[in-house]
Simulated assay, not measured.
Amino acid sequence: MARTQGTGEKGDPIIIKKYANRRLYNTDSSKYITLDFLAELTKKDVEFQVVDAKTGEDITHNVLTQIIMDEEANGQNMLPVGFLRQLIALYGDSMQSMVPGFLETSLQNFRQNQKQVQDVIENVITSGPFGDIAKTNIELMRSARDALVPGLAPKKPSNSPKKSDDIDDLKRQMAELQAKIERLNKD
């Protein structure tokens, strides 16, 4: 998956300066930012580089590691203990130089195949006796995800008449509910 280049000159990555007081400064927007902001840029595949403001040293790796540590400490555990132990054991090993490329390629393949896996799981879930209920629930969850985190899901062309009918039906139901609420407020 290709990363989006920053808005710097010639599509260069956005430069973030880290000062001695641990503050991060986005040179592209001329604003101070947080690690959470950098995490969001990462999730949106925006390319950036973090440099030490005093020395100019590239510290992107350290900052990304800090973001992972913060996520893991906040209960968002994604890295199993066994994996972490195996990773630590590879430090200093003759295979250490191969691990970063392997991990990066593996995660890229995982992200590319994620959609296919989701489709297979959805087909398994929706093919049973409660398939229609499962399909409705999946659509509701997707709608909630899209409303709460816009831009997370890939854009799909919406030339499906069934989807348009569903939207029209939902609009009609909302209008009916609004009318009922107004009548209740008048009483």
Rank of each mutant, 00 (worst) to 15 (best):
T126V: 07
G56K: 04
D52H: 15
S29T: 15
T105H: 11
K155E: 07
G75R: 07
D28W: 09
E71H: 04
G101V: 02
N159Q: 10
D187P: 09
Q5V: 03
A134Q: 07
G92V: 03
V124W: 03
L87R: 09
D168F: 03
I121R: 12
G128K: 12
K10C: 07
T42G: 15
R3F: 02
L177P: 01
S29P: 06
G8R: 15
T42L: 14
S94K: 15
I167F: 04
A153D: 05
D12K: 15
A89G: 06
L140R: 15
G11P: 07
A89M: 09
R22I: 12
G92W: 02
Q118C: 14
A89F: 12
G151P: 03
L79K: 02
N109A: 13
G56E: 09
D165R: 04
P129N: 13
T7Y: 15
K171N: 06
L148D: 09
L35W: 02
Q173Y: 08
S30I: 05
L184V: 04
K18S: 10
L24P: 00
L38F: 02
D93E: 11
L41V: 05
R142I: 10
N74E: 08
A147Y: 09
V120C: 10
D12M: 14
V120T: 15
L24I: 03
L152Y: 07
Q76W: 07
I33L: 04
N123A: 15
